[in-house]
């Protein structure tokens, strides 16, 4: 073994070994290392005594504080509910009208509703609640199932074509796929439906619209009403306004008539509390435009 030597720069002895030119100093471990080791170990031991820490066969040490994440979070959520009660109780108790007339409560509805809506509803109805791609715009006066607070609350509670036992059920038949109507009949009725909300574009003949009207009366009026103003009982939309769920062009309308429509709105009863749902109703009504 080589002899220990002293490093000129630091003044420490080497261990006397050399590996491919590398030597080591035998510098003592700085105090600070032991000190921090002791401090962190002390912290650890203290933590182990206070908290659940070590396994013992079929159980574990529970810790002096008896802390448990699950009870803690349940308590925190409860506490938060209690803290919110000063305004949530008012929302729960008051009528829709009263709340809408109370700017302070409405400010709270807006703050809360935006996030509830963002995390649960925006996936379908978009962050601005304007829908699209087959999902209704919730900011219009045009409602499928009614625009009263109670009707909206019910839609949210049970959903449409959802898994809830009392779900609202709606279906527009597939006139084309099921062979009820022929191609030209469907084209005519589409032309007629388009004429209900907008003056017919130049090319479309009056004959065609008249023919379409006949088809409509025979096949569609049952749901959409004789004038096409819709039916809130069946969730059949009003076809005379300018709001469209699936698009306003002839192709989109034809596709609906041909293949039928049966979209789904989930039921939120099992997922959101009655309070949250009430806030959502108020939030939607608040966003409603002309």
């Amino acid at each position: 073994m080589a002899v220990e030597e002293r490093d000129g720069h630091s003044g420490y002895l080497t261990t006397g070994h050399e590996w491919n030119g590398i030597k080591e100093l035998n510098t003592p471990v700085p105090r600070l290392v032991y000190l921090t080791l002791a401090v962190t170990a002390l912290f650890a031991v203290g933590y182990w005594i206070l908290m659940p820490a070590f396994p013992l066969g079929s159980t574990f040490t529970k810790g002096l504080l008896g802390a448990d994440d699950r009870t803690a979070v349940t308590a925190a959520v409860k506490q938060a509910q209690t803290d919110r009660a000063r305004w949530t109780d008012l929302i729960a108790a008051k009528s829709y009208d009263d709340i809408q007339g109370d700017p302070r409560l409405m400010a709270q509805v807006r703050a809360t509703g935006a996030v509830l809506f963002g995390d649960n509803c925006a996936a379908c109805h978009q962050r601005d609640a304007r829908g699209g791609n087959g999902f209704p715009n919730l900011t219009t006066q045009s409602w499928l199932w009614g625009g009263t607070p109670e009707a909206i609350a019910e839609t949210i509670r049970v959903g449409v074509n959802a898994a809830h036992p009392n779900t609202r059920v709606s279906q527009m038949p597939a006139f084309g796929r099921d062979g009820v109507l022929k191609r030209d009949e469907m084209e005519n009725v589409v032309a007629y439906v388009m004429s209900l909300s907008a003056p017919p574009a130049g090319k479309v003949s009056a004959d065609r619209i008249a023919a379409g009207k006949a088809v409509f009366t025979a096949n569609c009026a049952a749901c959409h009403g004789p004038e096409g103003r819709g039916n809130l009982e069946l969730g059949a939309p009003n076809l005379t306004d300018s709001h469209w769920i699936y698009g306003s062009d002839a192709t989109a309308l034809y596709a609906g008539v041909w293949g039928g429509l049966q979209n789904q709105m989930p039921s939120w009863e099992g997922r959101l509390s009655a309070l949250d749902r009430k806030i959502l109703v108020l939030y939607i009504l608040d966003r409603r435009g002309p």
């Binding site: 490093d7 720069h9 630091s10 080497t14 261990t15 491919n20 030119g21 590398i22 030597k23 080591e24 100093l25 035998n26 510098t27 003592p28 471990v29 700085p30 290392v33």
Partner: peptide, 13 residues
């Protein structure tokens, strides 16, 4: 240590 041409600071550490 090889590149620096210095002995390792502390064997004990």
């Amino acid at each position: 240590p090889k590149r620096a041409g210095r002995p390792l600071f502390s064997y004990r550490m």
